[in-house]
Amino acid sequence: MKDFFHSTGFKLLLGVVFVLFGVLLYTASAGGSAISDLLGLVTAPMQKVSTVISNNAAVAAEDATRSREQLIAENQQLRRQIDELHTQLIDYYQLKLENEQFRSVLELKNDNQDFQFVSAAVIGRDPNDVFYTFQIDKGSSAGISVNDPVITNSGVAGWISSVTTSYARVTTILSADTSISALDKVNRQTGVISSNIEFAEQGVIKMGYLPSRDAVQEGDIVVTSGLGGLYPRNLPIGKVLEVFPEESDVTYYATVEPLVDVKTVRDVFVITDFEGQGEVLDDLDAASAGEEE
């Protein structure tokens, strides 16, 4: 036993534990490190290639595993669709630009000239996370920074929770760490979007701090209110499902079905800059600095 504690291996283990403990304390306080950057430079391109291969293989496998009957049925359905599309083609060119304007996130920029977008692909999903956090293939070198909103064509997907040079991590709207000031688009009722593990498992989020059961109605669209400076206003979040009383106080909350399925999303846009971004954070920083003085 005495030999064991004097062995080179054990001394090496103690050294490693000591160094790792230092790294742990450093990253816990600083929130990032050169080691993360370095490892990310190696693993991010590998993940990108792996994701592309996996996506292509999934599409190929889907075709290969279908039965003859399924293919015949799909063929008939596609023929019907072609007929329908022929009739719609007459209006197609006229409607094309208008359609794209509503459906593409790039058109969002027309209404929000102050928005700066970076498009990114999802390259990794960590199995250790319970709230479907994912990695994207763009990092600080593309202008992305912590707290930037992440959206898709459909609406809000989450926010940037950490960033390295080559990739960034997105905490989704299903996470308990997410808190968004929201607005019911129909009756202008405000609330706060949050979640917990039980809601996340059902794929829904919660709009809290509602004053009454009638404050929002089933089917109402919920958008970002813009308060807080983390998200620009009017980004779609989801659709109201049901309203319940809170167990802990006299307010009500609504379950909201997000418009973005964050469990399967593949491509996102990061809003790197918009008018009013971080205003409240800056005010808070200034206030806390003032208190310290």
Partner: peptide
């Protein structure tokens, strides 16, 4: 250590947590 560091990297929280446990 390698496996733990990679797990830490994937989680993106505190680098060294899984590395420490896995190394020991």
């Amino acid at each position: 250590l390698l496996a733990g560091l990679l797990t830490d990297l994937g989680m993106g929280n505190t680098l060294g947590f899984h590395a420490l446990l896995a190394a020991v």
